[in-house]
Design a protein around this nucleic acid. Structure first.
Lengths: 175, 175
DNA sequence: CATATAAGTCAATATGGCTGACGTAAAATC
DNA sequence: GATTTTACGTCAGCCATATTGACTTATATG
């Protein structure tokens, strides 16, 4: 650690010309970079959420409802991979406080179709803007090829084919 | 959602030729991809941790102690950005169960230098191997340029200069 | 009509964060 | 040498978010 002033601790193993080691070190770095980047990525939203007394769970619900207006509760559950009980706590809070509206399904009236209210959209915009600014800053520093590489690797990490399908290149800037 | 069979909800807004919109859509996709990729990335470790009755907090401690053997408690606190009390809960558990050893600092005997025991290294290896395999799979599918792009973008997302310094190319932290 | 599904709810439990207050040992400073 | 600061640990309590299991209600569907 930069900030550990203490005795012999070696630090991460040293670089050698061994290609297998290189590969390993590269992978370990990726793990660590994901940790730091994700921490900062969620951090910018967490600050805002604090103002509203909400947590990440609320953010995720708001995010996906925003992306898929009219989605059902069970659809949201499948995406988030949490239990109905866990979701219900944050969802009912969001509904009570007027960030999310529920509307009975027309074809299937058991369903509660979820949508953001204007208030919800305003919050979503605030949260999203903060995260987009962070990513935009990173994208700006690198080239379009790097961005494309970033996307490809993230897609590769997603195991689930169903998740991946969400990202069929709608139309990136060029290519 | 692919998995929402319900009425009109549109899905992600449709593509238009507006370049500003494109940029926005691209950024929103990045947000979502990070969410899914990170969920799967932590998921492979979570499964293993379950076998030991540990959680992500234990994993993070094990990970950083492994990367920086001999680091101090306060060094670890600074990296993880959690409170002493939170860390102590998991750390003392790891020490009690023989995954981590503590050793008084030589220069400063107030410090407890942290290291993995053999048992700890074995667990770390198991966890790391699972995550490395996931990343390796993704790296394999894409080219070296994509990998480089992935790294660049993640570095750009990290706000903190100190964090970034850990990843000066090829060889690790050092410094 | 019987069964399955969508949603909501009650209750209990676990994890992992947090704050605040304190204690002890050792180092650093005046 | 006395004082202050630092590193670490710990007690106690709070909160958010997740879990499992059991059960209800409304509605859809065979």
């Amino acid at each position: 650690m930069a900030d550990v002033k203490s005795p012999p601790h070696g630090g991460p193993t040293k670089f050698t010309a061994n290609p297998l080691f290189l590969r390993d070190e590269e992978l370990r770095q990726a793990i660590e970079m994901l940790f730091f980047a994700y921490r900062d990525f969620t951090g910018v939203a967490d600050e805002i959420l604090g103002d509203y007394g909400f947590g990440r769970a609320h953010h995720r619900a708001i995010y996906f409802i925003s992306r898929h207006p009219g989605m059902t509760v069970s659809g949201l559950l499948r995406i988030l991979r949490i239990t109905k009980q866990s979701l219900n706590r944050v969802l009912s809070q969001l509904v009570e406080e007027g960030y999310v509206s529920q509307q009975k399904g027309v074809q299937d009236r058991r369903q509660r179709l979820l949508r953001l209210t204007d208030k919800g959209r305003a919050l979503e915009e605030r949260l999203s803007a903060a995260q987009r600014a962070l990513i935009a800053g990173a994208y700006r520093e690198v080239g379009a090829d790097a961005v494309e590489g970033f996307r490809k690797v993230l897609l590769g990490i997603m195991g689930n084919e169903e998740d991946r399908e969400r990202f069929e290149r709608p139309a990136p800037p060029r290519r």
